[in-house]
Simulated scan of single mutants.
Amino acid sequence: MSDRALVVVRAGALTTVQDRGRPGHAHLGVPRSGALDGPAAALVNRLVGNSSDAAVLETTLDGCALKPRSDVTVAVGGAPCRVTVDDRPVAWGAPVRVPAGAVLDVGPALSGVRGYVAAAGGIAVEPVLGSRSTDLLSGLGPAVLTNGTVLHLGRELAPYARVDVGPRPAPPAELVLRVTPGPRADWFTPEAVRAFTSRTFHVSSASNRIGLRTEGPALARAVDGELQSEGMVLGAVQVPPAGRPVVFLADHPTTGGYPVIAVVRAADLSAAAQARPGTPVRFVAVRRR
């Protein structure tokens, strides 16, 4: 057995294996999944010399701690945090060489929500439907990490990046989501449609990888009947009976029975992945391209 592996010392609140996901299986009821902050995951992979589709670890709020069985190059990105090796500070957002047996500690997020840890060679778990991603909704992919989990690594294929730090946008102080109205905007009153794109909502603490839930004004329905279940896409803004919009993220269901008032531009969803509870949210209507 190869000693190219990481042992999980501290799993954190929710740490999962993620890559670019498994798109193209919605007709089978399988969500896309994958890293919620795709650009952050791609950057840490690039910093350690991996391809952009290599599997990384996605942490949630309080980070994780890992011990490599052999020397390995890692990079930590996404939500800014303190990073140490055997209690000594090392760089965040840059390649770091971690000796065998040392403890890499990824601390709590100083801002934002989700951190990403790439190791040279990538996390080498068995792919399911072409992806190594953990899907919390369907249960596909590797299990959520627990203390003592052993994560085997692939072979290093390229030299790591020679940079001091990889620049990344700061987590949002205000989340602005561009939306294309519809397909069920006519299920809401004109006042509700106006409120959706003119009032401020806030990120709910009930948000997760399935959806970003909001708190704020309730959107009143113009149609009280039941909606037959229909297909859902990444970024769909569904409105449950309570009237508070929910933005569907990577682990969203593939069908749903509540009306979708709009769909968020895909380019804005990485910022949604880093929006903490209480962050103001504004939906801005844009024309279809």
Rank of each mutant, 00 (worst) to 15 (best):
R4A: 15
V7E: 13
V8T: 14
G12P: 12
V17L: 07
G21L: 07
R22H: 12
P23T: 00
P23C: 00
P23D: 00
P23V: 01
G24L: 07
H25N: 03
H25L: 15
A26V: 14
G29Y: 12
S33M: 12
S33W: 14
G38Q: 13
P39L: 08
A40S: 14
N45I: 07
N50D: 08
S51H: 02
A55S: 12
L57K: 07
T59R: 05
T60G: 03
L66E: 02
L66A: 04
L66W: 09
P68L: 05
S70A: 14
V72P: 06
A75E: 06
A75Q: 01
G77R: 12
G78L: 01
A79N: 08
C81N: 00
V83F: 07
V83H: 04
D86R: 04
R88H: 03
A91H: 03
W92S: 05
V96H: 07
R97H: 11
V106Q: 00
P108G: 13
L110N: 02
S111V: 03
R114G: 10
G115K: 10
Y116M: 06
Y116W: 09
A119L: 06
G121A: 08
E126W: 01
S133M: 02
L137S: 06
S138F: 10
G139I: 08
V144K: 14
T146C: 08
N147C: 11
N147F: 00
L153R: 11
L157A: 15
P159V: 03
P159D: 11
P159R: 08
Y160G: 13
R162C: 00
V163E: 09
V165N: 02
V165P: 02
P167M: 09
P167H: 13
R168K: 04
A170D: 15
P171Y: 13
P171S: 07
P172N: 05
V176L: 08
V176I: 14
V176F: 04
L177R: 00
G182A: 09
P183N: 08
T189C: 14
E191F: 01
V193Y: 07
A195C: 13
A195S: 13
S198H: 08
V203N: 08
S207C: 09
L212G: 09
E215D: 15
E215T: 15
G216H: 10
A220H: 13
A220K: 14
R221C: 01
D224A: 10
D224V: 01
G225L: 11
G225D: 15
L227M: 15
G235E: 02
A236W: 00
Q238T: 09
V239D: 04
A242N: 11
A242R: 10
G243P: 03
R244I: 01
P245Q: 06
F248Q: 15
A250S: 10
D251W: 07
T254C: 12
T255I: 14
T255A: 00
V264S: 11
R265I: 00
R265P: 02
D268A: 04
D268R: 06
L269S: 00
S270C: 04
A273K: 10
A273S: 10
A275H: 03
A275M: 03
R276A: 15
G278T: 11
T279S: 04
T279K: 12
P280G: 10
F283S: 05
F283R: 07
V284R: 15
R287Y: 00
R287Q: 09
